[in-house]
């Protein structure tokens, strides 16, 4: 196993250039990065074909460590850049990684429209329920009643459910996992890329430094324990009553459908407009 891990690290990380990384000891981001490269390895994709794009925040630093075509964009805008990349070269596999604030506060509009548009992109959203890099301010997923550096008296707003939002906005593939369920993340990323439409993989993660510390979960183990205890598989949740599900969240596949994909639809428009064939274009 250890040998296998080393092999992947050498293959997919810019290990000689940018390490040690900026993340806190025990941060869930590393687990997500690990799951991502394992999923890519299992899919047999070429590194040259992959674009990994991010926004701003702790998650935003992920691309710098990975040996792909990497793009660290502005706060919340990563899906817009990714849209341009994918449309300009549909042969590329474009994966975005965002945080909860990044994807659903400043980037919320781009997120729902990307889901509606159904371009072949995979959006990994690392949901640690807080703005970590800027110092623990509340985010759109900070739970009601919890504490943050800008919610000193307890948070009075209500949290988004990112995956449910994605389903409603029309994403082809939606799944949720947690950093406790590391192999599930890997499976979900793989499935999302395989779906071929717009896929969302929400990963509940731990920011013990900024969120846990203010909410009686100051170490990563406690936070992982919390995830283990509150996550219910989609299958199991189907058999539970609303009372039993109170305070829990589901993990697994929430949507996996086939819809017309933007690039394929656009190719039909080109054909109708009389465009020259791909190889003959000026």
């Amino acid at each position: 196993m250890a040998k296998e891990v080393t092999k992947l690290v050498h293959e997919y990380l810019r290990h000689d250039k940018k390490f040690p990384h900026v993340w806190c000891p025990g941060c869930g981001n590393g687990i997500v990065l690990g799951a991502l490269i394992r999923a890519i390895d299992r899919l047999g994709l070429e590194k040259d074909e992959i674009v990994l794009a991010s926004g701003i925040g702790c998650s935003g630093r992920m691309p710098v460590y990975a040996d792909f075509n990497t793009l660290h964009t502005t706060h919340g805008r990563c899906l817009t850049f990714a849209t341009g990349v994918k449309l300009a070269n549909p042969a590329l596999t474009v994966i975005t990684v965002m945080g909860d604030g990044d994807a659903t506060a400043i980037g919320g509009n781009h997120f729902i429209h990307a889901a509606r548009r159904n371009l072949d992109l995979t959006a990994i959203i690392i949901n640690n329920q807080i703005y970590g890099m800027t110092g623990g301010q509340f985010s759109p997923t900070t739970p009601y009643g919890s504490h943050a550096s800008t919610a000193r008296y307890g948070h009075i707003e209500h949290a988004f459910s990112i995956s449910e939002l994605a389903v409603t906005a029309g994403a082809s593939f939606v799944a949720r996992a947690t950093v406790y369920h590391a192999t599930l993340i890997e499976d979900m990323i793989k499935k999302s890329i395989e779906n071929g439409g717009f896929g969302v993989v929400e990963v509940i993660s731990n920011c013990h430094t900024e969120y846990g510390r203010r909410n009686n979960m100051a170490d990563p183990v406690t936070m992982l324990q919390w995830m283990k205890e509150h996550a219910v598989t989609v299958e199991k949740a189907g058999k539970m009553s609303p009372e039993e599900l109170a305070g829990k969240f589901t993990v697994g596949v929430l949507a996996d459908v086939k819809k017309p994909v933007y690039t394929e639809e656009y190719e039909k428009i080109r054909k109708r407009a009389g465009a020259p064939k791909a190889g003959e274009r000026a």
Binding site: V51, A53, T73, R77, A82, G84, V85, A88, N89
Partner: peptide, 11 residues
């Protein structure tokens, strides 16, 4: 954002 992405992809 989209035009920057497209340009990075060579268009």
């Amino acid at each position: 954002g989209a035009i920057i992405g497209a340009s990075l992809a060579g268009t």
